[in-house]
């Protein structure tokens, strides 16, 4: 009985204020979709980092007899190589793994890479220097290796693959920041809109609330329909936002990105669902909070 009465009031309130209800639902949907997009992008970046950082290594190229660098005086000597090897091994646990690539191995890889190209015919193993391939436990700390070994005798240069990847990740981080900033602005707009809508609703129903007050309805009973209205709008908006994210995941990620970019992995559905729960919670909580604060000011009880 009470429930049915309250639900009837909620339905009437939403229906009577239809344009504002629509505005509310769409604003909530857009802001939550943006927030969700930002959150998913972050998970994607985290996943890609995990995937790529497992594979990146720092390469320490040793001097060859043709090297022009000031640190090189002809090809690196065996003593220099031993010293570098020992120093690298002493930098455990940051240095997880060290692999020495000989000229022959580099040459084989080179041939494989440029098979059929005229450049492969002229190269000899000695042209391709020896190198240490270093795997780090924390790829973010590559500058430690770079600064320790750059310019040392026998080392031509220190090359870090992570520097290349970092550019990509900086781009993704930037995108994510933009999405999050827009989402934040939209959430502020949403809160203000919820407040304004509730203010309008409280004003247009002041006759009803006035009578409720007079006959001794409790504050809870007077405010509940308004509160539920904003929460229902938020729930519908969150539903739309989640639908949009699922659509993006299904059409853009699964049917376009994943087949085109096989070298990396993409977020799975479980990320979408956990993000959905977060969006639902944030949407409803924000709407309820905004409604409560407004009602405290504009609905005398």
């Amino acid at each position: 009985m009470r429930l049915r009465f309250v639900m009837g009031e909620v339905w009437n309130g939403l229906r009577r204020n239809l344009t504002m209800t629509f505005a509310l639902i769409i604003t909530i949907a857009v802001s939550l979709a943006l927030l969700g997009g930002g959150l998913l992008l972050r998970q994607q970046v985290t996943q890609m980092k995990g995937y790529w950082f497992d594979k990146v290594e720092v390469s320490i190229f040793l001097c060859t007899k043709n090297s022009q660098e000031s640190s090189c005086a002809g090809a690196a000597s065996q003593a220099e190589k031993d010293q570098i090897q020992a120093d690298l091994e002493s930098m455990s646990p940051l240095v997880q793994d060290v692999y020495f690539e000989t000229s022959q191995e580099a040459y084989d890889r080179f041939l494989e890479q440029f098979a059929g190209s005229p450049i492969a015919d002229t190269a000899v193993p000695e042209d391709l220097g020896e190198s240490f391939r270093v795997k780090l436990s924390d790829p973010d700390r590559y500058p430690v290796i770079t600064s320790a070994f750059t310019g040392r005798p026998g080392i031509e240069k220190v090359d870090d693959q992570k520097q290349v990847l970092d550019k990509l990740f900086r781009l993704l981080d930037g995108l994510q920041l933009i999405a999050m900033s827009i989402a934040l602005a939209m959430l502020i707009v949403t809160v203000l809109l919820v407040g304004n809508t509730m203010r309008l609703a409280a004003f247009s129903r002041r006759r009803e609330t006035g009578i409720m007050r007079l006959v001794g309805a409790s504050k809870f009973y007077i405010q509940l329909p308004f509160l539920l209205e904003s929460m229902v709008a938020a729930a519908i908006g969150a539903g739309l936002a989640i639908g949009a994210l699922a659509l993006v995941k299904s059409l853009l990620v699964d049917h376009f990105l994943a087949p085109s970019f096989k070298f990396t992995s993409f977020i799975g559905w479980e990320s979408v669902w956990t993000t959905s729960v977060v969006l639902f919670g944030i949407g409803i909580a924000l709407a309820a909070l905004a409604a409560l604060v407004t009602l405290r000011r504009y609905l005398r009880v």
Partner: peptide, 20 residues
């Protein structure tokens, strides 16, 4: 101070409904 969109009976019932 009656509610114009409610009938006579609904107006009276309203006072009881809102106090549960």
């Amino acid at each position: 101070r009656l509610l114009p969109n409610k009938t006579v009976a609904q107006n009276v019932a309203f006072a009881l409904e809102v106090i549960g």
